[in-house]
Write a protein that binds this DNA or RNA. Structure first.
Lengths: 158, 158
DNA sequence: TTTACTGCAAACTATTTGCAACTCA
DNA sequence: TGAGTTGCAAATAGTTTGCAGTAAA
């Protein structure tokens, strides 16, 4: 997984620097959908002189290569996820937690979209919104109709 | 369509100001996925004193109500789309064009995601990436393998 | 050796906020 | 009437960039 991604860098004649290796390793081994700031802080012991700009540049590079994808969860910054196996995300509209979901396979949607739109399709990104189990408990929500009495900034809750 | 949305504002006891009506009308009648700046400029003749902050605030309000959704197409700002009927988007990774697609219905994915994740699901957002017909022509791309020789910042193109 | 990369700080820019004036209900 | 809304300007904050020094290949 890591080796493959490093090979991918080499294939593109992109230098494999310690910073890139360490950031990539971090992403491969952490499935917590970190923000730039989180990555920066978590790596400061390993790479004391690491620059925030380098984290930005590196993530952008990985995104362009398709190794990593960008996610938004409603808070300020952008979050990142190693995309070794196709999947999509469910985002909690209350706490911002992001959960990976590996089913169903949505590649058929790409085919359908290509047919209808005439685009040459290269990929997709699916985000499902809702309330995570913890927030459901904390807020006393057990069914969709309960959402109506909440003052949350929940989209789609009419 | 417009009337329904205005009724929705009233239901939420949100004031129907001229700014809100005009911005809403603009969104209902324009399917060009405008940015904040585009909306602001297009409305300056109708509302000479309109503030950019008001456009931001109004759009945020509409998004929170689920009337409008936010989109990213790779350029700096955020784009907006009146969401009167569920659909998703195909985004051109070269020129940033956004195209609406109304099939297939993806509500089954919400059900599946809810089952797997335990979330109480309230909505979803699907984005498909690719090259629009115009850019395919302009770039001389006719099949997926042609993407490899391009120097575009296309994700997923390995 | 050489060219790409890093780190730092400054610059940039999309978005938010404070507040006084205003206005819809 | 008065609570919610607008407009303006200033503030904020995430991200990018310029450049000199550094290091991977």
């Amino acid at each position: 997984m890591l080796t493959q991604s490093i090979q991918q860098l080499k294939n593109h004649k992109i230098r494999v620097t310690p910073q890139r290796q360490i950031i990539l390793t971090y992403l491969v081994t952490h499935h917590n959908h970190p923000s730039v700031e989180t990555i920066y802080q978590d790596l400061e012991t390993q790479l004391p002189n690491l620059s925030l700009a380098t984290v930005y540049n590196t993530l952008k590079l990985f995104v362009d290569l398709g190794i990593v994808i960008e996610l938004q969860n409603g808070d300020a910054g952008t979050h990142y996820d190693f995309f070794g196996r196709p999947h999509y995300h469910v985002v909690c509209e209350n706490c911002g937690k992001i959960t990976d979901v590996f089913e169903p396979d949505l590649s058929s949607v790409e085919v359908k979209a290509a047919e209808i739109s005439g685009y040459l399709v290269t990929g997709h990104n699916m985000e499902v919104y809702g309330l995570c189990p913890d927030c459901q408990k904390a807020l006393g929500v057990t069914q969709p109709s309960d959402l109506k009495r909440l003052n949350l900034n929940l989209s789609h809750s009419e």
